[in-house]
């Protein structure tokens, strides 16, 4: 609403953004295009070699809407969607809250071994998960969690190093005077964290929530390794069902992909303001 750019610069900005956006948009366009083609169109015939990107072939004709219905029938979409949603919600809530608490500790509290412990936290991200997979699997099995959702939820309740690091970086930029003055007023550290730091950090909290959400949404290996009941699997597993050894029905894969990303796309589009504005808007009202 407060357009601070002149029309010329506005146009220029649009031009630059549009040009840059093309490569980012390409896969989506192609995905939707393929998802609407008949299967026989996907094996290009003679002289059609370059077809997927040729303009005349980008728009499918006839438009095969039925691919979406077919893909929905091929896997229990609703079951997967339910499982995925539950996993996502639980993981996002647990990961963001626990990470914020830990990050505040690392950012604004002084205690012995703070620096070495933080370096240790960073280091835990440096070892590839491939080699801790087996010991971790055996640990969860000893705990009796094999075959349940627990290995997929509980670890994120104890802070995610990536988010702790990111939030720490943001918490560190809050002016010390603000926190000091709150302390002078007699606020406890928990109150400062809850009532001062958290509200000021909505953008970074939202960013972490988004990353955790996407991670859980796309995670296909985790559920597959710890669960054995197809009724407990997630959408990412359902998506894998459309890939087969010798190339499968690309139309169905792409239709499934489109349905797979639609909720995420919508969510991001609707909430993207949060990542960059958050409380700032509220604040200016005051």
């Amino acid at each position: 609403m407060n357009a601070r750019l002149g029309p010329g610069k506005r146009l220029l900005t649009h031009a630059i953004l549009i040009v840059l956006a093309i490569p980012f948009l390409l896969p989506l366009v192609w995905m939707v295009s393929t998802s609407l083609k008949e299967d026989t169109q996907i094996f290009p015939r003679e002289g059609e070699a370059a077809s997927p990107f040729a303009i005349d072939n980008l728009i499918p004709s006839p438009v095969a809407w039925h691919n979406y219905a077919d893909a929905l029938v091929e896997v229990p979409f609703l079951t997967y969607l339910g499982n995925t949603t539950v996993l996502c919600v639980l993981n996002v809530v647990c990961a963001v809250l626990s990470s914020a608490v830990v990050a505040y500790g690392f950012a604004r509290l002084r205690f012995r071994f703070r620096e070495p412990l933080f370096v240790l936290l960073l280091m835990t991200m440096a070892l590839p998960a491939q080699v801790t997979m087996i010991p971790q699997f055996m640990l969860f099995r000893e705990l009796g969690w094999y075959g349940t959702f627990l290995p997929l939820i509980v670890p994120s309740c104890f802070g995610v190093p990536l988010f702790i690091f990111l939030m720490r970086q943001f918490f560190l930029t809050i002016p010390e005077e603000m926190i000091e003055s709150a302390r002078m007023e007699g606020a406890s550290e928990w109150q400062i964290f809850r009532q001062l730091v958290m509200p000021l950090s909505i953008p970074v909290l939202a960013t972490c929530a988004l990353f955790q959400f996407l991670h859980t949404w796309n995670d296909f290996v985790g559920p597959l390794i710890y669960l054995n009941d197809p009724n407990r699997y997630t959408l990412a597993y359902g998506l894998q069902q459309f890939l087969s050894e010798y190339g499968g029905r690309w139309s169905h894969l792409m239709a499934a992909s489109a349905m797979f990303i639609a909720p995420v796309l919508l969510l991001f589009f609707l909430t993207q303001r949060t990542f960059i504005q958050g409380i700032a808007t509220t604040g200016s009202k005051g």
């Binding site: 626990s98 830990v102 505040y104 509290l109 703070r114 240790l120 936290l121």
Partner: peptide, 16 residues
């Protein structure tokens, strides 16, 4: 202060 700091980072410490 030490105790408070450890309290805040305890989720990660336990998880670790």
């Amino acid at each position: 202060r030490d105790r408070l700091g450890y309290l805040f980072i305890s989720p990660w410490l336990i998880g670790f």
